[in-house]
């Protein structure tokens, strides 16, 4: 798989920034890591070795190694991901917040130990505070308590919220948040339901 031109520029830029003395070494180590990786895993359950193949976004964010990206590269990642967002054909972006709450609580899905026909959740609570009543929440992402109450429920907010869940990289390059729609983790209906959990005035997170 050939990286996109913008990605090639990033990798080359990183090598130059790292200094001439280590440039060759870095490339060799990166190639070696890729070889080692492929020999160090075996397929299990629903997780095949294709899960180790990176797309351009994954490759660029791995190469950044936790450091901030140059603005132009970040903008290119965001543009490329923005282009992947598919909005529902029926134009309705908001589902049922009660189902959204279940999806936000559900941690199963896509692990090699999970039943491939079993539930797939978003596990939002692993990283975010949402409903006030749920005290077992993580802090990797920002608190989403009163998300809708603070932003309102306009068409623009609905569109942004649905898009953010569908492909988070469209709005924040190299975010820690998965791309739930683009990577086929959640269905269209599930994304609508999670959007409802965030935006419906009746949702417990907006109380």
């Amino acid at each position: 798989m050939n990286p996109a031109p913008w990605l090639r520029a990033l990798i080359l830029g990183g090598a130059i920034a790292a200094g001439c003395a280590t440039t060759a070494g870095d490339k060799e180590i990166a190639d070696q890591a890729s070889t080692v990786l492929k020999a160090s895993f075996k397929p299990a359950g629903q997780a095949g070795l294709d899960r180790l193949d990176q797309d351009d976004t994954q490759r660029a964010c791995s190469a950044a190694a936790g450091k901030p990206l140059p603005h132009d590269v970040a903008a290119q990642i965001e543009q490329a991901n923005l282009a992947t967002i598919r909005y529902p054909a029926d134009g309705k972006l908001i589902g049922d917040w009660r189902n959204g709450e279940k999806i936000a609580q559900e941690g199963r899905g896509k692990q090699f130990s999970d039943d491939p026909n079993g539930p797939v959740g978003a596990n939002c609570y692993a990283c975010h505070q949402l409903s006030k009543g749920e005290l077992s929440f993580g802090t990797i992402g920002p608190s989403l308590y009163q998300y809708g109450k603070l932003r309102g429920n306009s068409a623009e907010v609905q569109r942004y919220t649905y898009g953010k869940i569908f492909n988070s990289e469209a709005f924040a390059a190299c975010t820690n948040m998965p791309r739930f729609g683009y990577k086929g983790i959640l269905t269209e209906q599930q994304i609508k339901d999670v959007a409802a959990l965030l935006l419906d005035p009746a949702s417990p997170i907006n109380q």
Partner: peptide, 23 residues
């Protein structure tokens, strides 16, 4: 730092910042 899989996770996703928790 290697991101991959359906969720784009690397070790660094969860273990790259101070004072974070999962649940």
């Amino acid at each position: 730092y290697y991101r991959g899989g359906t969720h784009d996770f690397a070790c660094a996703t969860c273990h790259g910042e101070d004072g974070k928790r999962i649940r």
